[in-house]
């Protein structure tokens, strides 16, 4: 975590050149540098920033003149709502579909599963979002196009955001089921005379779901990234629009604060995933 924050701060380099108007005089640049503490040695800046960050102070936005932490917390619920909805949607569709397609390769549902798997890899979410708006909002008038008022507003953005992870989950589950089906214990279960339904539900499914655990965590953080496009397109008032606005305004402290926040969130989630993995898979515990 420490290394990561330091890394991020280093990566952003000298922000003065980006934040000051191009025609600023050297004196103006210097004044700006001093005012924002960029004149101090990098290590000192880093330690100062780090201390503040750990205390929940992520600096102040240059354009909005509000504490970054406050801005983030304001927007966080909307993003969480969208990302969780998208995650839930991918799970609800991907889990049954992935398992069925693995158990019955070649069936019509398998074809559907493979199509979804392919769509996740080949259709950019931001383009899908625009097509969804055109079809379901503009032409069919089934859903609202932007904003966040009711559950209806959530449908299109959640669908657009979920496709990539849904596709990945379907592909993963399908191959996991195919792989597990070849294991010896499945053959044993079959030779014991267990019905196919019992074998699928009690032996294949739990084992095939194990690799999904790690994907769920990773996908959730990727959705936070993907929300930058989706939120912007649907004018969803979350972290993604905040980040996009901050980029467009060259509001450097805010961009940095949001990325650090997302990074910290991702690391926390990775840790949780690892713990969950240990709880679920006894093989991981032994190592």
């Amino acid at each position: 975590m420490l290394v990561l924050v330091f890394f991020t701060v280093r990566l952003t380099g000298d922000p003065v050149g980006l934040m000051v108007a191009r025609n600023a005089t050297p004196e103006q640049r210097e004044a700006f540098r001093v005012a924002h503490g960029f004149d101090r040695p990098l290590a000192e800046q880093f330690i100062g920033y780090l201390g503040n960050a750990l205390g929940g102070d992520l600096g102040k936005s240059l354009r909005l003149h509000l504490p970054n932490a406050e801005l983030i917390m304001q927007r966080l619920p909307a993003t969480m709502e969208l990302a969780l909805a998208a995650l839930l949607l991918s799970l609800v569709i991907a889990v049954p579909l992935g398992i069925i397609s693995g158990v019955f390769p070649g069936s019509p549902l398998d074809l559907l599963a493979r199509l979804i798997g392919l769509a996740g890899q080949t259709i950019p979410s931001f383009w899908l979002a625009m097509i969804l708006i055109l079809v379901f909002a503009v032409n069919l008038r089934l859903f609202p196009t932007f904003g966040r008022d009711s559950l209806e507003h959530l449908v299109l953005p959640a669908v657009a955001l979920s496709v990539a992870s849904m596709g990945q989950m379907v592909r993963l589950l399908r191959s996991a089921v195919l792989e597990v089906s070849r294991e010896n214990y499945i053959r044993t279960a079959r030779s014991k005379g267990l019905s196919e339904i019992v074998i699928t539900l009690r032996h294949v499914t739990p084992n095939a779901l194990i690799p999904l655990v790690s994907v769920v965590g990773v996908n959730f953080t990727y959705m936070l990234g993907g929300s930058v496009y989706i939120e912007t397109i649907f004018a969803w008032p979350g972290l993604g629009t905040l980040l996009n606005d901050a980029i467009n305004d060259s509001d450097f402290p805010l961009v940095q604060a949001i990325t650090i926040f997302i990074a910290a969130f991702a690391i926390g989630l990775n840790l949780l995933t690892d713990i969950a993995y240990d709880l679920i898979d006894p093989r991981a515990r032994q190592r």
């Binding site: 290394v3 990561l4 890394f7 991020t8 990566l11 952003t12 380099g13 980006l18 953080t221 990727y222 936070l224 990234g225 993907g226 930058v228 980040l243 980029i247 060259s250 450097f252 961009v255 940095q256 990325t259 997302i262 990074a263 991702a266 690391i267 990775n270």
Partner: peptide
């Protein structure tokens, strides 16, 4: 390995965005 794992745990898009803004 520690650098690699660090970068891999970062949401890719966000990583690219920070660098691209610079």
């Amino acid at each position: 390995s520690s650098i690699v794992n660090l970068l891999l745990s970062f949401p890719y898009l966000v990583l690219v965005i920070i660098i691209a803004t610079v």
